[in-house]
Each structure stands twice: as structure tokens, then as C-alpha cells.
Design a protein around this nucleic acid. Sequence first.
DNA 1: TAGGCTTATGCTCCTCAGTAGCACTTTGTG
DNA 2: CACAAAGTGCTACTGAGGAGCATAAGCCTA
Lengths: 216, 216
Amino acid sequence: MTADISPASAPETLSLRERKKLRTRAALVDTALALFTERGFDGVTLDELCEAVEVSKRTFFRNFASKEQVASAPLEALWDGLRDDVEHLSFDGAPVLEVLQEALLVSLARMDDSGAWVTRVRQSRELAELTPSITAYGLQYCDRTSAAIEATLQRRLSLDPADPRPRLALDLLVASFHAALRAWTAKPGTPTHAALAAELRSVFAVLPGALTFSRA
Amino acid sequence: MTADISPASAPETLSLRERKKLRTRAALVDTALALFTERGFDGVTLDELCEAVEVSKRTFFRNFASKEQVASAPLEALWDGLRDDVEHLSFDGAPVLEVLQEALLVSLARMDDSGAWVTRVRQSRELAELTPSITAYGLQYCDRTSAAIEATLQRRLSLDPADPRPRLALDLLVASFHAALRAWTAKPGTPTHAALAAELRSVFAVLPGALTFSRA
DNA sequence: TAGGCTTATGCTCCTCAGTAGCACTTTGTG
DNA sequence: CACAAAGTGCTACTGAGGAGCATAAGCCTA
């Protein structure tokens, strides 16, 4: 289920067919981000996108569930990575939230492919800011992924399903990431992978203060 | 901008035209929730809904921005109330998050109209659980409202726009409410307004623990 | 109370996202 | 080499949502 995008990360172990599919997928994402950025999300029809990639609409919907998803693909890869990792994390001793924070940083580090992913994320982010339906899709995706991770946590840590804390911890993680993303997008200049990781660490650091701060 | 639904809360101070509009709006919400609950969100077309209420599709879209919104209307009234209240809250001394938590409970108390609102919320919630697009719309609405409240906080408390804490506090508030809603929906029996308020207080109480808890 | 103004409403036509059926091609396998 | 399985193109269809234009209902001033 992991949504991989970068053609570079398609090793020879995959069959010819699978590599071709990944190439089609990557082309759709790249072309979509370019066209949406140029003419706006609503200014590009799926027919135009499919024509640009020389693919039928049928093929598009075999790769993506919606027009919004193709614009959100870069961030989905990050969260899919985290979701899969949670299955094998060690939770001994450390607070769950801290373990999840570290895991998110690890998943983020895995996305570091000399700038391509970061560029796509930036485009995706700017599109989401202009397009409510992309925001809506992204939030729903986070919600669904959080629910899946919560289920894994409950199983692996033998938690009471009624305990709201694991889900709250996940919502905290998601909120932190979105805050980091906003700060990162707001900064001028070329956005780097390292800068995003730094923003994220910085938000993690001030998180406890969000519960207690009062007017200056 | 406040989306009021209950016909009972339409005092005589409103003009005839405004009261009629509110009645149409309320009828659309009630009929929509009933039809969606009966046959599923996707099993009811807008044309059917409009025919049942004896209203044209044009009128529907003057009252609601989308099919999803009409199913989310009850909760929007709650958050709209909070958004408007933040303009006049006192933030002296107490932590911002605590003030917001109290304000949310006040807005919730204002929704207490002898069961009608609670019933609609329950229906809305159950629909959202079955229908991703309703979830997506609701999350996007929360995101937008949170951004509006954050702007108010920044202005009233003279905060640095780059400070992530107010937005994190709001995301925490939203996450708490959703957790309370989940717990409340999961409970069997007739759901009451008081029970929802109790769930919410209970989540607020365990919130700090969400940052620090570890495996049992 | 008559007339004019504003605003909601209905009607109709349109675009486009997303689905489904069917036939064709390509790739992996016995 | 043949057969199974999966991806793809083509086409036709449904339904959400928007736009233009005309009408009606409520509101306001003389």
C-alpha cells in the first residue's frame, strides 16, 4: 500500500510491469503538480492531465483515488512510511509520543532523495493552501492513517481501546508536522530537506508549552 | 456567518424573510440527515433531497456550499459559536488552552435545546463514520475555523505570527473534542447533551497525559 | 396603499469528476 | 508456445456543482 513516487527508488528487483506502473505514477504526479501550479487546481481538467501524460482517465483512476490525491501524493509517502514503521518500533521505557516523534523524523529522513521529494512537497503544500479540497483530502488522509496507527498501537501495547491518549498523541504528532510545514513554507529562499527536519524538531520542543502558555 | 439551525432559536426580531430562510435551512438539514441515515450518503441524490423539501437545487446551494456541509451543519454551529466568542474572551492570567477549553464548553452548553441538537449531532457523527467525504469536509472546516481563531488570538494577545503555540493549542482543542465525540458515539443507549459535556471534560483531564504516557 | 427596490427562488443548460463495461495488449508462468 | 493475469484504451453514463435569466416574495419610502 505504500505509495512510492520517485523513479530512482525503483530497484531492479521489481518486475518490468511494476516498474512501468511506477513510472506512469511518477509522471502523473510530476505533471499534475506542474500543471496545477501553473494554472491552478481547478484550471486543469483530468482530461488535460491525462492527455499531457498520454494516459487514459481509466489509468489515472487505477493509480489514484481522486484528483486531490495526486496532488497530495508526496506527503502520503511520508505517512505511509511511518504507518509501516510503527509495526516494528520498540516502545520500551520511552513515552509513546517521543517514540512516534523519532519515527516521524526517521520516515522524513528516508524521503531525502537529493531534493526531488522536497520540491514536490513544497508544490503540494502551496497548492493545498490555495485549494480547500486538497486540504480536505489531506486531512482526511491523516485522519485515516492516524486511525490505522492507533489500532497498531493498541494491539502492540495492549491498550484499552477506550483510552483516548494514543489517538491524542497521534493528533499531536500530526498537528506538529503541519505546524512545521507551515513554518517551512513561509520561510523565503530555497526550502531544503534539512530545514524541514529542523522545523519539526523545533515544534516538538515547544509542544509542551502549547498546553500551558498564557498571554505575555 | 453563524449557521443557526434550530427553528426554536429564531426570535421574532428577525424579519419574515429571514425566518423563512431559517426554516428552509432547518428543513434541509433535518430531511438530509433522515434520508442519508436511511439510505446512505451516496444513496441520496441532491435532486431527491430537494424534491423532498420542495426546493430547487439552486436554493440548496444558496444555503450550503456542498452536499457534505448539510450533513455537518450541527457541528458547524458549535464551532461558529466558539469562533465568535473568542473575540470577547478574557485571557488574563489563565493559560490560553484552558480559556479555550472553557469557551468550548460554554458554546456546547448553548447548543442545549432539549435534545434536538444532540440528536442531529449523533446522526451527523454516524454518517461521517461511514462516509469519508463528510469526514474530509468536517476536518477542512475545523482547519479553516482554527485558522480564523488563531488570527484572532494573535491580534488580541499580540502574539508573534510565527509562534506555533496558539495553533497547536487549537489543534489540541479540536483533537480533544473529536476524541470526546468518538467516545460519546461509542457508548450505547440514548446519548445526552450532558454526557457529551462530561466526555469532553474527561478528555481535557487526560490531555497532559497524552504527551507523557508510555507502555504499561 | 402604491410603487419601486432588494433578495430569494425556480428553471434550464452546462462542465467535469468519477464509475463501469468491453475489447485489446502486455507481461509473467507452466 | 500457450495460457492466465493484469494494465490499458475507448466509450457511455451518473451526479455534483455552477451560471444566466426571469419571476415572485418581502421590504421600504412617499
